[in-house]
């Protein structure tokens, strides 16, 4: 995977950083602290990595939204920030799939219940929302650490019912109408729906990139393991981690999908 491709993605991100400050004014009121879960410090072990990268990443304690952002919440955002409405968004920051399941610019419609997670949002849009809220997107390592927790223990992989629910969701196509965010069962940290509702953007999603030829990646000391060599994989049995990695790798920052949403994070003690 291509460092060059990273660059293509990052260039607009720098532009966004310049624009972002202008957009950030006048955001909706941040959700209260009780709506966020505290994720304790821990260690994230990437399922696969470049040989030059460390085996583990230390993650400081942080706060994470207990729920993904809903259609209603994102509607409030686009009402307050008209340049993020479907008809006005710059094609640099969102492709034609942006909010395509909504009935109109500021109208949700039958395919987008207010309490369902918002999807068909680009990374740029998700990031703009978080900034408007005075927060940020979680980092990949943060999100993975939070999502590794099970219903009853910090290591969901050891919980049979957690695994059953996780793989059942992964195997199912995305329904036309997504369920309410409140339907998701909380994990031990109080975060709901990290699995079982939608995929979620992370701030540094493009560091998980693979070539799309999963067997070449191992040979290139890159991310994803498959048929040929398990050498680059820390745990080739963690299929769910591979699937998240593949999903992130297939995305571009201006794209969205019908099963991709996001939630916000914040440092534990804001500077």
């Amino acid at each position: 995977m291509s460092r060059l491709r990273c660059a293509f993605l990052r260039l607009p991100r720098l532009l966004l950083a310049l624009i972002g400050a202008a957009l950030a004014a006048g955001g909706a009121a941040p959700r209260g602290g009780e709506a966020m879960a505290t994720i304790p410090a821990g260690v994230y072990r990437p399922v696969s990595r470049a040989t030059t990268d460390p085996e583990t990443v230390a993650v400081a304690a942080f706060r994470l939204d207990a729920l993904p952002v809903t259609n209603a919440e994102f509607l409030a955002f686009v009402v307050a920030h008209p340049r993020w409405r479907r008809s006005r968004v710059s094609p640099l920051f969102a492709d034609e799939t942006y909010l395509r399941h909504w009935a109109g610019d500021t109208e949700l419609g039958p395919l987008a219940p207010p309490d369902a997670p918002v999807v068909n949002v680009s990374w740029f849009a998700a990031r703009a929302y978080a900034r408007a809220e005075g927060r940020r997107l979680p980092l990949l390592a943060e999100w993975e650490l939070a999502a590794a927790a099970g219903y009853a223990t910090p290591r969901g992989r050891d919980e049979p019912d957690f695994n059953r629910d996780l793989y059942a969701w992964l195997a199912r196509p995305t329904p036309d109408v997504l369920p309410a965010v409140s339907s998701a069962r909380p994990n031990i940290h109080g975060a709901r729906g990290l699995h079982g509702l939608v995929w979620e953007w992370v701030d540094d999603f493009d560091t998980a990139m693979v070539t799309g030829e999963s067997r070449a990646d191992a040979a290139r000391d890159q991310n994803l393991f498959c048929g040929g060599a398990a050498a680059a994989a820390s745990d080739p049995g963690d299929y769910a981690a591979f699937m998240r990695q593949a999903l992130r790798s297939s995305l571009k920052a201006r794209q969205g999908t019908a099963s991709l949403g996001f939630r916000c994070a914040a440092d534990l003690s804001p500077p």
Binding site: T174, T211, E213, A216, A246, S250, L251, S259
Partner: peptide, 25 residues
């Protein structure tokens, strides 16, 4: 659009790295 995951295709009839896998991710 309803797919949960990204997909690609490796055609064994293709002469070329990955049989088209990377190009169709």
């Amino acid at each position: 659009p309803s797919s949960k995951l990204p997909h690609n295709i490796d055609l064994h009839a293709v002469t070329g790295a990955g049989g088209g896998a990377a190009s169709t991710f």
